[in-house]
Amino acid sequence: MSLILMAVAPIMVILIYIYFQDKYEKEPVGLLIASFLLGGIVSVLIVTALYLFTGQFIPITDEYSVWQQFIQAFVVVALSEEFSKYVIVKYFAQPKKAFNEPFDGIIYAVMVSMGFACTENIMYVFQGGFETAVLRAFTAVPAHATFGVLMGYYMGKAKFSKTRFRLNMAGLFLAVLFHGAYDFFLFIRFIPGISIGAFISLLIAIMLSRKAIKRHQDNSNFKSL
């Protein structure tokens, strides 16, 4: 039970933080919970299916190959995982009437991302124990949140734009870019010291996420109400 609490606690902290960043017009709690559960169940199932496909057709034959690790990081992992989250936001959240301002893209994308991260974190923490729980609380979990913010920023803009497809794709691309970079620097651990690149990419993603949140807050349709 303690391991489950340690796995879930950082997820809850981020969810509460993002919820209160939605300052001017809160989303229905039922939709937020549904988004979280879809991320934790449906997104995970999509990723599992994609992993089975990519694992068969894009196998690692040389773990010391930088190119193969690049493909694993950006295509096999990042694209699969972010696409699985994107599908939920695009087809479940974005069409909802409650999705009525650009900031809603951020909150729904983060809810889906945290649902996915919750399932993933529980599995990793059960395998790795206390140290894994502490490490992931400050790395992988906030990383998933920032990927969600970056995706959601553009998906929030997309709903109210005539260039919806382009903006939706921009959100997916940015999430994949930072997710892939984060994983890539961790995957090529055979190069001494290169893992610092993962933390640098995470810090950049966090800074961009804070700017994205602030920009949508400032431009909220409900700010003056």
Rank of each mutant, 00 (worst) to 15 (best):
R164W: 01
F190Q: 05
I71W: 06
M169G: 01
S80Y: 07
L203I: 15
Q72V: 14
I107M: 04
N219D: 13
M169Y: 02
F190V: 14
K159H: 09
G128M: 08
G105I: 11
L45D: 03
F173N: 00
Q94F: 12
L52N: 10
L135S: 10
A137R: 02
G30R: 04
F173P: 01
E82R: 05
V87N: 00
A137D: 02
T139A: 09
F199I: 13
F83K: 00
G156E: 06
A49C: 04
R136H: 03
M6I: 14
S65Y: 10
R210V: 15
V44T: 15
S2N: 13
L186K: 10
Q68Y: 06
A133D: 06
L177K: 01
Q21D: 08
S201Y: 11
Y153C: 02
K90I: 07
I213S: 02
V76F: 10
G55P: 09
F173E: 01
A212R: 04
A170C: 03
V112I: 14
I18H: 08
D183Q: 03
I204R: 01
L50T: 12
V110F: 08
F138N: 00
N219G: 15
G148V: 13
Q56G: 14
L203S: 14
M12H: 00
K162G: 15
F74V: 12
I196P: 05
A7Q: 12
D104E: 07
P142C: 04
I88F: 08
T48S: 14
T163Q: 12
D183H: 12
N219V: 05
I46C: 08
V13Q: 01
L79D: 03
F185W: 13
G30P: 11
L174N: 04
G193P: 09
Y91D: 07
G128Y: 07
S84V: 12
S65P: 11
F187P: 02
P59Q: 04
L32Y: 11
L3Q: 10
I206N: 05
K223M: 10
Q21S: 08
E120T: 13
Q217T: 15
K97D: 14
L172P: 11
M207S: 07
T119Q: 09
I188C: 06
V75M: 02
A181E: 02
G171Q: 02
L202I: 10
M1I: 14
V89Y: 02
D218R: 11
F53N: 04
I46E: 01
M155R: 00
D104S: 10
I58G: 00
F83N: 00
I213L: 05
A109R: 01
Y86A: 11
L177W: 06
M6T: 10
A212D: 04
